[in-house]
């Protein structure tokens, strides 16, 4: 028993000397190893040493946004997983749940976040927004209204926006996957 106590002391002093890896980094590392392979999503780490800041590229293969290539930035605070990652769309896109500033309205990125969720959950959530935009919870009210009233008109405008078109005075970024 005595030996265990002295071992414990040694470990404590050893631990103090180690460079500090934040809890967020440890957890994120686990999230990344558990990250599923999605054929429509890839991650990009501009600085491989910095796990807390990375980009996600979504290329939907069906739905309104098929043929587009969408970029998101992930900023993960040192409080992760107690706080959700801050996710922003880096392009100006025509989408009911993304405003022209790039803010994303996804419940698990906001009020419904809980620390047992992981990156997989967020990726699946984002992917789902492109397959099935949610008109009930809009950030771009006009886009949501159009989706609710006339799905065909919305489909046309979504496709126009991806080609860099202008809809009701707003010009959107060209986000086609093929140049």
């Amino acid at each position: 028993m005595l030996k265990i106590w002295s071992m414990k002391k040694n470990e404590e002093t050893a631990a103090k000397k180690k460079p500090k890896v934040s809890a967020a980094q440890i957890r994120l590392q686990k999230d990344l190893t558990e990250l599923e392979e999605f054929k429509t999503m890839t991650t990009d780490f501009p600085d491989p040493a910095d796990l807390l800041h990375f980009n996600l590229i979504i290329t939907p293969d069906e739905g309104f946004y098929k043929g587009g290539k969408f970029l998101f930035s992930f900023n993960i605070s040192t409080n992760y997983p107690h706080e959700p990652p801050k996710v922003k769309c880096m392009q100006k896109i025509y989408h009911p749940n993304v405003d022209t500033e790039g803010n994303v309205c996804l419940n698990i990125l906001r009020e419904d976040w809980k620390p047992v969720l992981n990156l997989n959950a967020i990726l699946v959530g984002l992917q789902f927004l492109f397959l099935e935009p949610n008109a009930e919870d809009p950030l771009n009210k006009e886009a949501a209204e159009e989706l609710r009233r006339d799905r065909e008109a919305f489909a046309k405008n979504a496709s126009l926006s991806m080609r860099g078109g202008t809809i009701r005075g707003q010009t959107y970024e060209r986000v086609l996957a093929t140049p």
Partner: peptide, 12 residues
């Protein structure tokens, strides 16, 4: 479920 470390391990 929060830190994903085994119960027999310890929190971060």
């Amino acid at each position: 479920g929060i830190c994903r470390v085994s119960f027999e391990g310890c929190c971060p």
